[in-house]
Design a protein around this nucleic acid. Structure first.
Lengths: 160, 160
DNA sequence: CACGGGTAGTTCGTCACACGAACTATCAGG
DNA sequence: CCTGATAGTTCGTGTGACGAACTACCCGTG
């Protein structure tokens, strides 16, 4: 109820405005790599491993027809590819192409840097506290892993 | 592989995923009122006072041609109106129609409720801490008032 | 006063995004 | 086999975002 005598705002406004901020930064970063935010997100998700279309739809919270379009466009740009799923003739596995992986491995850390810069005015313990609190919020609300944590991105789960 | 043995995530992932979450909630809420997220945002901004197009572009971070389209569509839905600016023949003032205000006054608090529910598992002091930390982040990064704080919505025009 | 540069918005063409409904093809259980 | 569920695609529609080009107007300067 008491909000901004000294710049203090409610938790709702704080969440909405920080969302607006992160959206803008993410979009801007993607733009500079020739990506849209959605395509950037797709690449980030696929960094860890290939996904089926339905699975991707669940992670990105998209209707299946929306996802077909997104993968179509990203595939047309040469960043992802569809492969038949050996276990199920109906299904496809979407994975990064070499070019897509290269791009993701530039885009992802650069975007991390930019997001990381947003709370730069907070000291280390405050940043940790923020991460912990927000982390609990996303955990409590079962947010899909739409952005891998550090260490999950580049080197760990890859080879084939 | 270093971070989430116990659910802890880095600050970047926390920010990105919470953004994803709030986006989804906001979009969903708007959808139920027959709005898109952008139109809902427009209504929320206009709740406090009328804006000029350029001004709106700055707040919503949209190119002017994008804004023309958004206002066009929202106007077609009968929620906002363009009025000539008495001070400047070139300019227009965009304001809520009565119907737009009614809708905003349903949409805004309902969306607040939903956003507020996200950190419900945090206790009061934790919520306060989160609001304070996030509030500083948005302040440091000069995020426009894209979502009014409580009390700024109806008639109490509390400046800057 | 005229002129010229800046400002306010719109128009136009283009592409991305998101959805639902209808569709094809395959899987799996009986 | 049949039948119902599952995996994806296609199609049509509306929204969203942008840059470039345009009109109309403001205002300071000469």
């Amino acid at each position: 109820m008491s909000e901004h005598d000294d710049g203090r705002i409610g938790i709702v406004a704080a969440l909405v405005r920080s969302t607006f901020l992160v959206n803008a930064v993410y979009t801007e970063s993607a733009r500079e790599y020739g990506l849209t935010m959605q395509q950037g997100q797709l690449l980030c998700v696929l960094m860890t491993r290939p996904y089926g279309m339905s699975e991707l739809g669940a992670v990105l919270r998209l209707a299946k027809s929306s996802l077909t379009g997104l993968v179509d466009r990203t595939e047309r740009n040469g960043l992802v590819q569809r492969e038949p799923d050996p276990r199920d003739t109906r299904a496809v596995r979407v994975s990064l192409t070499p070019r897509g992986r290269d791009l993701a491995e530039e885009f992802y850390p650069e975007t991390c840097r930019r997001i990381e810069a947003l709370p730069a005015e907070l000291d280390a313990s405050e940043q940790e506290a923020l991460a912990a609190l927000l982390g609990r919020v996303v955990l409590d609300n079962e947010v899909p892993v739409v952005f891998p944590g550090p260490g999950e991105g580049g080197s760990t789960a890859r080879g084939s």
